[in-house]
Amino acid sequence: MTVTSTELKANSRDIRPGRIIAWTLLLIGGLIMITPLLFMFSTSLKTSGQVYDLRLIPAAPTFDNYIKVLGDGRFMQWFLNSTIIAVTVTISNVFFDSLVGYTLAKFEFRGRYFIFLAILSTLMIPTEMLVIPWYLMSSQLGWLNSYWGIMFPGMMTAFGTFLMKQFFEGVPNDFLEAARVDGLNEFTIWWKIAMPMVVPAISALAIFTFLGNWTAFFWPLIVTTSKELYTLPVGISSFSAEASIQWELIMTGAAIGTIPTLLVFLLLQRYIVRGVMLAGLKG
């Protein structure tokens, strides 16, 4: 491919001082964010003796840690636990937050505003304050040390409801009324018409919920006592609680643990940027 002089001129015009500063700042920001990840990956390729050697590229990289971690039945159990919990809670949030958000956005009924405010007000209460009531509740209802005990506080969230309500408000009523005239019931209208129009919001909610639950540490640590029910972050942290801190294993577990989050993001992020809604309206 040849570059013409006109293109060269155009490119050189693009290199302005403002742009250079912006790129530099972005580069610094990017490096700050990626450096811990690089060290995590690097440490996962080191032996226990090399952990405190801060060279980014290990002198003698090894996959032994991966073999050790993946061969440990407990790790796979924690991975499975985290997967079950994160997937279930994500599906639950997408379903219930959307249903409630849609109802609040599209139906007129007495007390609608009050209910919305009540839901929103829960956003102001920090998780740390809720942990004791959650624990007491779990204890009374026999939910301690169970999947349900880990999942129930997050099955529906105020943030998700708020997010979905805002997006559903942007769905023109004509679509819903057209479906009503076509004979659909309200549930089918929500599922078949409204939901596909807020796919970007659903994707965002799914990513946030999945990541939040995949990395959840505090509540799963409190509500579980049996190691078989540990989630991945709780399980990985237990590596440090034993005789000595096994950084290379912790970092290996963390590196494996990032794979699902990357996959979820890669799978869903394209829907966030794809605005499909307006295509069916006036052009």
Binding site: P172, D174, A178, V181, A279, G280, L281, K282
Partner: peptide, 18 residues
């Protein structure tokens, strides 16, 4: 609406984009 056997065409078309 569904029990009235009527069909409606809207100003904004309201055809489903998906």
């Amino acid at each position: 609406p569904k029990q009235r056997n009527i069909a409606m065409v809207f100003q904004n078309y309201a055809i489903y984009p998906h």
